[in-house]
Protein backbone atom coordinates (compact mmCIF):
# COMPACT_ATOMS: atom_id res chain seq x y z
CA UNK A 1 0.00 0.00 0.00
CA UNK A 2 0.97 3.63 -0.47
CA UNK A 3 2.00 5.29 2.77
CA UNK A 4 3.72 8.42 3.98
CA UNK A 5 6.21 8.34 6.84
CA UNK A 6 3.60 10.19 8.91
CA UNK A 7 0.93 7.58 8.11
CA UNK A 8 3.35 4.77 8.87
CA UNK A 9 3.99 6.27 12.32
CA UNK A 10 0.25 6.60 12.87
CA UNK A 11 -0.30 2.98 11.82
CA UNK A 12 2.35 1.98 14.36
CA UNK A 13 0.61 3.90 17.15
CA UNK A 14 -2.80 2.52 16.20
CA UNK A 15 -1.43 -1.03 16.12
CA UNK A 16 0.13 -0.61 19.58
CA UNK A 17 -3.08 0.86 21.00
CA UNK A 18 -5.03 -2.11 19.66
CA UNK A 19 -2.58 -4.73 20.86
CA UNK A 20 -2.24 -3.56 24.44
CA UNK A 21 -4.78 -1.69 26.57
CA UNK A 22 -1.95 -0.36 28.74
CA UNK A 23 -0.67 1.71 25.82
CA UNK A 24 -1.75 5.34 25.66
CA UNK A 25 -0.49 8.48 23.89
CA UNK A 26 0.00 11.82 25.59
CA UNK A 27 1.49 15.13 24.59
CA UNK A 28 0.70 18.67 23.52
CA UNK A 29 -2.03 18.90 20.90
CA UNK A 30 -2.00 15.19 20.08
CA UNK A 31 -5.81 15.10 20.30
CA UNK A 32 -8.10 17.96 19.29
CA UNK A 33 -5.47 19.65 17.13
CA UNK A 34 -4.56 16.38 15.43
CA UNK A 35 -0.88 16.43 16.36
CA UNK A 36 1.52 19.28 15.60
CA UNK A 37 2.84 17.25 12.65
CA UNK A 38 -0.52 15.50 12.16
CA UNK A 39 0.91 12.11 13.17
CA UNK A 40 -1.94 11.40 15.60
CA UNK A 41 -4.68 12.80 13.35
CA UNK A 42 -7.92 10.85 13.86
CA UNK A 43 -6.69 8.81 16.83
CA UNK A 44 -8.71 10.84 19.35
CA UNK A 45 -11.90 9.93 17.50
CA UNK A 46 -10.82 6.29 17.38
CA UNK A 47 -9.55 5.78 20.92
CA UNK A 48 -11.11 8.60 22.95
CA UNK A 49 -9.62 11.22 25.25
CA UNK A 50 -8.68 8.71 27.95
CA UNK A 51 -6.02 7.14 25.78
CA UNK A 52 -5.21 10.06 23.46
CA UNK A 53 -4.46 12.63 26.12
CA UNK A 54 -3.88 16.29 25.34
CA UNK A 55 -1.51 17.78 27.87
CA UNK A 56 -0.90 21.39 28.90
CA UNK A 57 2.41 22.99 27.95
CA UNK A 58 4.29 21.21 30.72
CA UNK A 59 7.05 19.13 29.18
CA UNK A 60 8.81 18.33 32.42
CA UNK A 61 5.51 17.48 34.06
CA UNK A 62 4.03 15.17 31.48
CA UNK A 63 7.30 13.41 30.62
CA UNK A 64 7.78 12.79 34.33
CA UNK A 65 4.19 11.61 34.56
CA UNK A 66 4.94 9.22 31.70
CA UNK A 67 7.82 7.79 33.72
CA UNK A 68 5.54 7.42 36.72
CA UNK A 69 2.82 5.77 34.66
CA UNK A 70 5.37 3.34 33.27
CA UNK A 71 6.47 2.52 36.83
CA UNK A 72 2.80 2.01 37.62
CA UNK A 73 2.37 -0.62 34.94
CA UNK A 74 1.19 1.40 31.94
CA UNK A 75 2.92 1.57 28.56
CA UNK A 76 2.93 5.29 27.75
CA UNK A 77 3.90 6.83 24.44
CA UNK A 78 4.82 10.43 25.20
CA UNK A 79 5.03 12.84 22.28
CA UNK A 80 7.18 15.95 22.55
CA UNK A 81 6.67 18.34 19.65
CA UNK A 82 10.35 18.89 18.89
CA UNK A 83 13.68 17.99 20.37
CA UNK A 84 14.31 21.61 21.37
CA UNK A 85 11.29 21.48 23.69
CA UNK A 86 12.49 18.18 25.16
CA UNK A 87 15.16 20.24 26.89
CA UNK A 88 12.49 21.35 29.35
CA UNK A 89 12.11 17.66 30.23
CA UNK A 90 15.79 16.79 30.21
CA UNK A 91 15.86 16.46 33.98
CA UNK A 92 13.12 13.83 33.97
CA UNK A 93 14.64 11.94 31.05
CA UNK A 94 18.20 11.82 32.37
CA UNK A 95 17.79 11.94 36.15
CA UNK A 96 14.74 9.70 36.35
CA UNK A 97 13.99 7.63 33.24
CA UNK A 98 17.60 6.73 32.48
CA UNK A 99 18.71 6.22 36.07
CA UNK A 100 15.88 4.60 38.03
CA UNK A 101 16.72 1.01 37.14
CA UNK A 102 20.31 1.40 38.20
CA UNK A 103 19.67 3.53 41.29
CA UNK A 104 17.06 1.08 42.53
CA UNK A 105 19.48 -1.80 42.19
CA UNK A 106 17.45 -3.31 39.37
CA UNK A 107 14.05 -3.03 41.02
CA UNK A 108 12.28 -0.39 38.93
CA UNK A 109 11.94 -0.63 35.16
CA UNK A 110 10.72 2.29 33.06
CA UNK A 111 9.01 0.87 29.96
CA UNK A 112 8.37 4.27 28.41
CA UNK A 113 8.55 5.46 24.80
CA UNK A 114 9.14 9.15 24.04
CA UNK A 115 8.70 10.29 20.43
CA UNK A 116 9.80 13.66 19.12
CA UNK A 117 10.65 15.42 15.90
CA UNK A 118 14.20 16.53 15.27
CA UNK A 119 16.32 18.33 12.74
CA UNK A 120 16.46 21.32 10.45
CA UNK A 121 15.68 22.19 6.87
CA UNK A 122 12.42 24.07 7.20
CA UNK A 123 13.70 27.54 8.10
CA UNK A 124 12.42 27.31 11.65
CA UNK A 125 15.45 28.95 13.21
CA UNK A 126 17.61 28.15 16.20
CA UNK A 127 14.94 27.17 18.72
CA UNK A 128 13.19 24.61 16.52
CA UNK A 129 15.85 23.02 14.33
CA UNK A 130 18.47 21.19 16.28
CA UNK A 131 19.55 17.58 16.10
CA UNK A 132 20.18 16.58 19.68
CA UNK A 133 19.64 12.82 19.37
CA UNK A 134 23.41 12.37 19.57
CA UNK A 135 23.35 14.06 22.97
CA UNK A 136 20.73 11.66 24.22
CA UNK A 137 22.84 8.79 22.87
CA UNK A 138 25.46 9.84 25.42
CA UNK A 139 23.25 8.68 28.26
CA UNK A 140 23.44 5.10 29.59
CA UNK A 141 20.00 3.69 30.30
CA UNK A 142 18.35 5.16 27.21
CA UNK A 143 17.80 3.45 23.88
CA UNK A 144 17.85 5.86 20.95
CA UNK A 145 16.00 5.03 17.72
CA UNK A 146 16.17 7.03 14.50
CA UNK A 147 13.72 5.60 11.93
CA UNK A 148 14.63 6.73 8.42
CA UNK A 149 12.37 4.45 6.35
CA UNK A 150 8.65 3.74 6.16
CA UNK A 151 9.21 0.22 7.52
CA UNK A 152 11.03 1.56 10.56
CA UNK A 153 8.49 4.36 11.10
CA UNK A 154 5.81 1.66 11.08
CA UNK A 155 7.61 -1.03 13.00
CA UNK A 156 9.96 0.39 15.62
CA UNK A 157 7.29 1.59 18.04
CA UNK A 158 5.87 -1.77 19.06
CA UNK A 159 9.29 -3.28 19.61
CA UNK A 160 10.22 -0.19 21.64
CA UNK A 161 7.11 -0.61 23.80
CA UNK A 162 8.08 -4.20 24.52
CA UNK A 163 11.46 -3.03 25.77
CA UNK A 164 11.43 -2.83 29.59
CA UNK A 165 13.57 0.32 29.46
CA UNK A 166 13.04 3.88 28.21
CA UNK A 167 13.27 4.33 24.45
CA UNK A 168 13.47 7.67 22.63
CA UNK A 169 12.36 7.79 18.99
CA UNK A 170 13.56 10.70 16.84
CA UNK A 171 11.56 11.53 13.73
CA UNK A 172 13.31 13.92 11.37
CA UNK A 173 10.96 16.71 10.34
CA UNK A 174 11.89 16.42 6.67
CA UNK A 175 10.70 12.81 6.55
CA UNK A 176 7.02 13.20 7.53
CA UNK A 177 5.87 13.82 3.96
CA UNK A 178 8.10 11.20 2.35
CA UNK A 179 5.82 8.64 0.71
CA UNK A 180 6.33 5.27 -0.86
CA UNK A 181 5.24 1.67 -0.93
CA UNK A 182 4.79 -0.06 2.43
CA UNK A 183 4.03 -3.78 2.60
CA UNK A 184 0.43 -4.48 3.68
CA UNK A 185 1.84 -6.86 6.29
CA UNK A 186 4.43 -4.44 7.59
CA UNK A 187 4.77 -4.84 11.34
CA UNK A 188 7.25 -4.74 14.22
CA UNK A 189 10.93 -4.60 13.32
CA UNK A 190 14.09 -5.23 15.28
CA UNK A 191 15.63 -2.24 17.06
CA UNK A 192 19.10 -3.64 17.58
CA UNK A 193 20.84 -3.65 14.26
CA UNK A 194 22.04 -1.23 11.63
CA UNK A 195 20.90 -1.88 8.05
CA UNK A 196 22.78 -1.73 4.80
CA UNK A 197 20.57 0.34 2.48
CA UNK A 198 22.88 0.08 -0.52
CA UNK A 199 25.62 -2.45 -1.02
CA UNK A 200 28.97 -1.26 -2.28
CA UNK A 201 32.62 -2.15 -2.10
CA UNK A 202 34.64 1.07 -2.21
CA UNK A 203 33.54 3.13 0.77
CA UNK A 204 31.09 2.95 3.70
CA UNK A 205 28.83 5.96 4.06
CA UNK A 206 27.42 5.76 7.58
CA UNK A 207 24.36 7.79 8.51
CA UNK A 208 20.88 7.72 10.07
CA UNK A 209 17.52 9.47 10.06
CA UNK A 210 17.02 12.65 8.08
CA UNK A 211 20.28 12.49 6.17
CA UNK A 212 19.71 9.00 4.73
CA UNK A 213 18.01 10.32 1.54
CA UNK A 214 20.89 12.72 0.85
CA UNK A 215 23.44 9.98 1.43
CA UNK A 216 21.63 7.64 -0.98
CA UNK A 217 21.60 10.44 -3.58
CA UNK A 218 25.29 11.00 -3.01
CA UNK A 219 25.93 7.27 -3.48
CA UNK A 220 24.14 7.37 -6.85
CA UNK A 221 26.25 10.30 -7.92
CA UNK A 222 29.42 8.58 -6.77
CA UNK A 223 28.44 5.48 -8.76
CA UNK A 224 28.50 7.64 -11.88
CA UNK A 225 32.10 8.47 -11.05
CA UNK A 226 33.06 4.86 -10.54
CA UNK A 227 32.98 4.92 -6.75
CA UNK A 228 30.82 2.10 -5.42
CA UNK A 229 29.52 3.31 -2.06
CA UNK A 230 27.89 1.20 0.63
CA UNK A 231 25.22 3.06 2.63
CA UNK A 232 24.74 2.07 6.22
CA UNK A 233 21.66 3.25 8.14
CA UNK A 234 22.45 3.09 11.87
CA UNK A 235 18.72 2.87 12.89
CA UNK A 236 19.73 2.78 16.58
CA UNK A 237 22.22 5.28 18.02
CA UNK A 238 22.38 3.63 21.42
CA UNK A 239 23.34 0.88 21.75
CA UNK A 240 25.37 1.19 18.53
CA UNK A 241 25.53 -1.84 16.26
CA UNK A 242 29.29 -1.77 16.17
CA UNK A 243 29.58 -5.16 14.49
CA UNK A 244 27.77 -4.08 11.33
CA UNK A 245 29.82 -0.87 11.12
CA UNK A 246 33.13 -2.67 11.54
CA UNK A 247 32.18 -5.46 9.18
CA UNK A 248 31.31 -2.94 6.44
CA UNK A 249 34.50 -0.97 6.94
CA UNK A 250 36.53 -4.18 6.88
CA UNK A 251 35.23 -4.75 3.36
CA UNK A 252 35.40 -1.19 1.98
CA UNK A 253 38.45 0.08 3.91
CA UNK A 254 37.06 3.62 3.88
CA UNK A 255 34.36 5.39 5.82
CA UNK A 256 32.56 8.73 5.91
CA UNK A 257 30.07 9.46 8.70
CA UNK A 258 27.19 11.82 7.89
CA UNK A 259 25.38 13.35 10.88
CA UNK A 260 23.17 16.45 11.07
CA UNK A 261 24.33 17.04 14.63
CA UNK A 262 27.25 19.37 15.38
CA UNK A 263 30.65 17.78 14.88
CA UNK A 264 32.21 18.35 18.30
CA UNK A 265 31.33 15.65 20.78
CA UNK A 266 28.84 14.12 18.36
CA UNK A 267 27.63 10.63 17.54
CA UNK A 268 29.78 10.92 14.40
CA UNK A 269 32.79 11.42 16.67
CA UNK A 270 31.84 8.28 18.57
CA UNK A 271 31.53 6.23 15.41
CA UNK A 272 34.79 7.55 14.06
CA UNK A 273 36.49 6.66 17.34
CA UNK A 274 35.09 3.14 17.35
CA UNK A 275 36.30 2.57 13.80
CA UNK A 276 39.80 3.80 14.59
CA UNK A 277 39.87 1.83 17.85
CA UNK A 278 38.68 -1.41 16.32
CA UNK A 279 39.41 -1.35 12.59
CA UNK A 280 42.42 0.91 12.30
CA UNK A 281 44.41 -1.58 10.29
CA UNK A 282 41.54 -2.13 7.86
CA UNK A 283 41.49 1.56 6.91
CA UNK A 284 43.01 2.92 3.72
CA UNK A 285 42.05 6.51 4.53
CA UNK A 286 41.21 8.61 7.56
CA UNK A 287 37.56 8.42 8.60
CA UNK A 288 35.74 11.41 7.10
CA UNK A 289 32.85 13.33 8.63
CA UNK A 290 30.09 15.53 7.26
CA UNK A 291 28.22 17.34 10.03
CA UNK A 292 26.33 20.57 10.58
CA UNK A 293 28.29 23.79 10.92
CA UNK A 294 28.82 24.65 14.57
CA UNK A 295 26.22 27.39 14.75
CA UNK A 296 22.70 27.63 16.13
CA UNK A 297 20.74 26.91 12.93
CA UNK A 298 20.04 30.23 11.17
CA UNK A 299 16.68 31.19 9.66
CA UNK A 300 17.60 32.40 6.19
CA UNK A 301 17.44 29.67 3.60
CA UNK A 302 20.90 30.07 2.12
CA UNK A 303 22.52 30.15 5.55
CA UNK A 304 20.55 27.18 6.78
CA UNK A 305 21.49 25.15 3.71
CA UNK A 306 25.12 26.16 4.14
CA UNK A 307 24.99 24.91 7.72
CA UNK A 308 23.61 21.47 6.92
CA UNK A 309 25.14 18.35 5.34
CA UNK A 310 24.42 18.38 1.61
CA UNK A 311 24.76 15.90 -1.23
CA UNK A 312 27.70 17.94 -2.56
CA UNK A 313 29.54 17.90 0.75
CA UNK A 314 28.93 14.17 1.14
CA UNK A 315 30.19 13.46 -2.38
CA UNK A 316 33.24 15.64 -1.79
CA UNK A 317 34.07 13.88 1.49
CA UNK A 318 33.68 10.48 -0.16
CA UNK A 319 35.89 11.52 -3.08
CA UNK A 320 38.53 12.72 -0.67
CA UNK A 321 38.47 9.45 1.24
CA UNK A 322 38.44 7.41 -1.96
CA UNK A 323 41.30 9.43 -3.39
CA UNK A 324 43.48 8.90 -0.37
CA UNK A 325 46.33 6.51 -1.09
CA UNK A 326 45.66 3.03 0.15
Amino acid sequence: MKSSYREALRAGIRDAMQRDPRVFLMGEDVGAYGGSFAVSLGLLEEFGPGRIRDTPLSESGFVGAGIGAALGGMRPIVEIMTVNFSLLALDQIVNNAASLLHMSGGQFHVPLVIRMSTGAGRQLGAQHSHSLEGWYAHVPGLRILVPATLEDARGMLWTALEDPDPVLIFEHGSLYNVAGELDDNAGPVDIDSAAIRRHGSDISLITYGGTLPAVLDAAEQLAGEGIDAEVLDLRTLRPLDEATILESVARTHRAVVVDEGWRSGSISAEISARITENAFFDLDAPVGRVCSAEVPIPYSKHMELAALPSVERIVAAAQEAAGARG
Binding site: G125, A126, Y299, M303
Partner: peptide, 8 residues
Protein backbone atom coordinates in the same frame (compact mmCIF):
# COMPACT_ATOMS: atom_id res chain seq x y z
CA UNK B 1 20.60 39.90 9.65
CA UNK B 2 18.15 37.20 8.62
CA UNK B 3 19.45 34.86 11.34
CA UNK B 4 16.29 34.98 13.39
CA UNK B 5 13.23 35.22 11.17
CA UNK B 6 9.66 35.94 12.24
CA UNK B 7 9.94 34.23 15.63
CA UNK B 8 13.21 35.87 16.63
Amino acid sequence: RGRGGSMH
